[in-house]
Design a binder for these strands. Structure first.
Lengths: 223, 223
DNA sequence: GGCTACAAAATTGTCAACAATCCCGGCGGG
DNA sequence: CCCGCCGGGATTGTTGACAATTTTGTAGCC
């Protein structure tokens, strides 16, 4: 769906685009914040031409919203949109998990188990930051195993739009305890090369993420 | 995922983009064909600035591929990619169908049934072109009922990348006879407000499209 | 004939200046 | 005091020219 990211790595245009994306994903620009071309030119040492190209690219990824004559803003995704996005992620990652179960090799299965071990340890010792990293690593590994370029690009794009919400999610107390067994189920299903079980496990897991997302609404309320 | 299409309808930039997209989707530019900026400027009476913006947008939609210093081409999707794209469509349209079953209203249910009737008539009388139009109308109506903006945008984008393959598909003999009962099952499940059944019916339907897609490989072979 | 080297043409990449638009003050009238 | 009505500054939109790159055509050599 999105253009290949490898197309021109290293050029000024690509550097501006990747740098701006990283900055937004890091939260250095908050949702709704205005992205003034002149400032971006300074920050990324790029020409206006390249800055504009970067903005247009990121608008295509849904990270930036552009309004004619009114400039570019970091896109603000409402809770409702976040739920929609995660629903799509649920089914697409389900597809990915099923395919991973069909294609997983022995050494990859071992790596999955290793991540599972580390996850249990992290939760047992309350190292939630490490657990969060492992979570990303697990999902990334499953996507790599599935080797489904199309699904992978879509999930990656969707994930980008949710960074802010994902961040709030990780702060929810009790989340690791809830998601750990779900992750274990996913790992087991893929290791056992059971596509249907892997898809179900992944969908159940992300469905629970959606529930957690919705619960934030009551906690944080509208900003 | 993709930026809102309504953002600036009517401007020169939007006209160039939409015009070029239509032209590609109509098959006026064949996959792999080079898109020379100067030609597009003439054809769409747009400035180079707008033509380039249009190309970049369509690259974001996956319709166009751009290579540095080598210009833009209509993206060529291999059969393997077409299968991947359709697999993603399968799960996302499954989600849409499930949600449509949750939200369908009485008059919408009637419209679904009406489309079903027209489909049966079209197949009975061998009017395959009419059947193909009804097929699009059915999928579009289901997407409208589901009111899932995120999923809708993704499916629309994916569909665009497949026009060429979809076209070949409709020429496959026996397709309408295969897909008619599948469509009827989808309609019935949504009308009965059974989300799970609707999702399964939709997935089975598109799974059969994937099979048909694969069969083209043996018929048409690599170009 | 086939191959390489080189020049010319075509095409795309980039820039800097200019035009159009919007936003935010103040100003005057009611 | 509130409201509409101008500026002026800031910001984005667009253009045309020029630079860099690729592609094409040609001549010379083996």
């Amino acid at each position: 769906m999105q253009p290949d990211r490898e197309k021109d790595r290293g050029t000024a245009a690509a550097q501006a685009r990747d740098g701006l994306r990283e900055a937004i994903l890091r939260g250095e620009y908050l949702p709704g914040e205005r992205l003034v071309e002149a400032q971006l030119i300074e920050r990324f040492a790029a020409s206006r031409f390249n800055v504009r190209a970067a903005l247009q690219d990121l608008a295509g990824e849904g990270l930036v919203q552009m309004e004619r004559n009114r400039g570019a803003h970091v896109r603000k995704v409402s809770l409702e949109e976040a739920v929609e996005i995660t629903e799509v992620r649920m089914v697409v990652e389900g597809l990915i998990a099923a395919r991973a179960a069909e294609r997983v090799g022995d050494e990859q299965a071992a790596e999955l188990d290793e991540i599972g071990r580390l996850m249990r340890a992290a939760v047992a010792e309350g190292e939630y930051r490490a657990y969060s990293d492992l979570n990303q690593r697990l999902h990334a590994l499953i996507r790599a195993i599935s080797a489904h370029g199309t699904a992978d690009r879509i999930v990656e794009t969707l994930r980008g739009q949710l960074v802010r919400h994902q961040f709030m999610l990780s702060l929810l107390p009790g989340r690791p305890q809830t998601s750990l067994p779900q992750h274990e189920r996913i790992i087991a299903a893929i290791r056992d090369r059971d596509p249907k079980a892997a898809e179900n496990a992944m969908r159940d897991h992300i469905a629970s993420v959606i529930e957690a997302l919705r619960s934030i609404d009551y906690l944080g309320g509208p900003a």
